[in-house]
């Protein structure tokens, strides 16, 4: 183990990249989806904390690209390209998209979790990035951390324990 490894923390509606041996983490994913794109041969990974499926939902002109699945994932790919990653080598792991509360409301925002997951998968498909593993849906919050050495995504929950995917 390398002791000097540090953790890059990504907030809600934000994104960042990390190089091995450092790890990258985002906390408290509910209906949001954490998307990890990585190239293990280069030792580079990016993480986005996606909040909404589609930037068409944004009702302002200036948008924060990391907030939306349809803008965040292409932006992340571009950022990784600048780190010297070739896009066709990228792989993805995703987690999140829970339904924290069960309501009988027909309002669309109530099922934002599943919609986020669908939108993320659509983007990955468009960009031909293979989805290696996912832990999505359910009704639990998740804190995730990605380690480039093992390419494992560690997922912590309050009620369902810890696992690696």
């Amino acid at each position: 183990m390398i002791d000097s490894a540090s953790v890059v923390k990504v907030g809600i509606a934000q994104m960042d990249v990390v190089k091995a041996p450092n790890t990258i983490r985002t906390s408290g994913l509910g209906s949001c989806v954490g998307v990890v794109l990585y190239d293990e041969s280069k030792g580079v990974a990016g993480l986005i904390h996606v909040m909404l499926p589609d930037s068409q939902l944004g009702r302002t002109d200036s948008i924060n690209v990391a907030k939306f699945a349809d803008t965040g994932i292409p932006a992340m790919v571009n950022q990784l390209k600048q780190e010297g990653v070739q896009p066709f080598k990228l792989k993805a792991k995703i987690a999140g998209g829970a339904q924290m509360f069960q309501f009988t409301s027909s309002k669309d925002s109530m099922r934002i979790g599943p919609r986020n997951v669908e939108a993320v998968k659509l983007q990955l498909k468009k960009l031909s990035i293979p989805l290696i593993a996912e832990d999505t849906g359910g009704s639990s919050g998740r804190t995730i951390e990605f380690d480039l050495h093992t390419t494992k995504l560690n997922i912590r929950t309050v009620n369902q324990g810890v696992k690696d995917i």
């Binding site: 302002t60 924290m100 309050v158 009620n159």
Partner: peptide, 26 residues
């Protein structure tokens, strides 16, 4: 609406309340 209870991470819970506002602001 009837209140719903969740025992979970604060971020996972509160982010649900940010969905509406996140469509117009950060």
């Amino acid at each position: 609406t009837p209140p719903a209870l969740s025992i979970d991470m604060f971020g996972a819970i509160i982010s649900f309340g940010l969905i509406e506002v996140s469509q117009v602001s950060d």
